[in-house]
Design a protein around this nucleic acid. Structure first.
Lengths: 245, 245
DNA sequence: GAGTGGTCTAGACCACAGT
DNA sequence: CTGTGGTCTAGACCACTCG
């Protein structure tokens, strides 16, 4: 069953439901909660941890969203079968490499402020001709090219001129100037690479590439960044967890 | 502001938070709630609709998850600037296309029950040699090929022998026999097509294809379906909405 | 300081599944 | 029938932002 010696810290800034979710998550990963087994009885679970049922439910909802457990009305909550022994690599390659301590390297190909074209202006919802930061970076791991990242950021409100993008990522740079990304919409597709792209990525000419277009919005709802990226498909993939309801 | 003439139906089986989310969603789409404008004050909003704040919050949470609004503590809730409605659902491609008014057509290439290989068995978490339905379908729209769908379903518990897969999608067929998909993990990538795949999809030899591998779990947590699909990238892409936190 | 969203509680009743 | 998750209420206090 669940390890109850690990207690909750009510003085911590970390919300109780998140602490609970982490403990349940850990219990599943260590096998304390058997795969395919029941988690349930929210009420007793809540009592054992000394929280209200609503808080416990919120913790379980996090696990549902992560695809770790499923709930069925009238039956109970079960640990998803095959959640641990996943035959498919269900995390992205980039995360795998990062978690293995291998550091990504970045080469800045383009870093310039240009007037917004009609396309960029309409996507970032700014006036045509407004200054826009155009960033083009080659991202690699251990010297092997992984992706070409193309970004456009409206700079008449955001000043990123002093950022060294060979050392700092775009998102940390945005956070450093007070812009907090809150929501992003991505479109994932594929196409053949141009000769230049294939050269950059060390791919044979005309090779298949994975593409990802993204518009990121700040926590005020404004679009702040437009990205058009390409990835080597043999080294990168996107994983998505969907839940019904 | 918000149209208050549209009232809530407390006797409906549809939860209040969902009715609220739909009304707010509609108010955004019709422009009654101006883009970039404020939605906020959850407490007064709840009072106006005659629900508790918790219920109103849950409705707003749906909109946040859909990427329609963003919330900022101490400030308020704003409609996302440049929002496009494109929800991702846990349904088959067939349903997606049908709901958009297009005419999908399906050609069944393979429909056979075979003993599970070690790979299929480990993914579906069944014993090697157990009967598995192997389905291979060519999916097109308006006569143009769109995707090649490859599915494996453990059939020792699920009987789909009488299903006409040229007319009925896999997910409806599963529902018809009492299996309710609850969670799915997808991996989206790209590669060059084999000669056979390119012929089926009417693509030039060696063209870039979009790939999607998926494991679907039922509401009891058991894996029920494994899919390996390829799509013509000029006709299909995946959209994902991410939210911070 | 005033106003906002974020968290949490302690109840209540309902819908559904399995006995 | 019992037990489960699903929904909903009416409060409370806190953390944060901004004028």
């Amino acid at each position: 069953m669940i390890d109850e010696s690990a207690r909750l810290d009510r003085s911590s800034p970390v919300p109780l439901y998140q602490q609970l979710a982490e403990q349940l998550h850990g219990a599943i990963e260590t096998g304390a909660l058997s795969v395919g087994g029941r988690l349930g009885n929210e009420i007793r679970l809540a009592e054992r941890f000394g929280v209200s049922r609503a808080t416990m439910r919120r913790a379980i909802e996090q696990l549902v969203g992560a695809g770790a457990v499923v709930r069925k009305r009238g039956v109970g909550t079960s640990v998803v079968d095959g959640w641990i022994s996943r035959p498919i690599r269900l995390t992205s390659l980039f995360d795998d490499l990062a978690s293995e301590g291998q550091k990504p390297d970045t080469t800045v190909l383009v870093n310039e402020v240009i007037p917004a074209s009609t396309e960029v202006a309409s996507i970032l919802n700014i006036a045509v001709g407004q200054p826009v930061l155009h960033l083009r970076r080659l991202r690699g791991v251990n010297g092997d090219p992984l992706a070409v990242l193309n970004n456009y950021v409206a700079t008449h409100l955001i000043d990123l001129r002093d950022t060294d993008f060979s050392r700092i990522g775009l998102y940390p740079a945005l956070r450093a100037v007070g812009v907090r990304p809150s929501m992003a919409r991505q479109r994932i597709g594929a196409r053949e690479g141009t000769p230049e792209e294939c050269t950059l990525l060390d791919e044979p000419a005309g090779g298949a590439l994975l593409t990802m277009d993204r518009i990121t919005h700040s926590d005020t709802g404004r679009p702040v960044e437009w990205g058009r990226h390409i990835y080597r498909p043999d080294r990168y993939a996107f994983t998505v967890t969907l839940t019904a309801g």
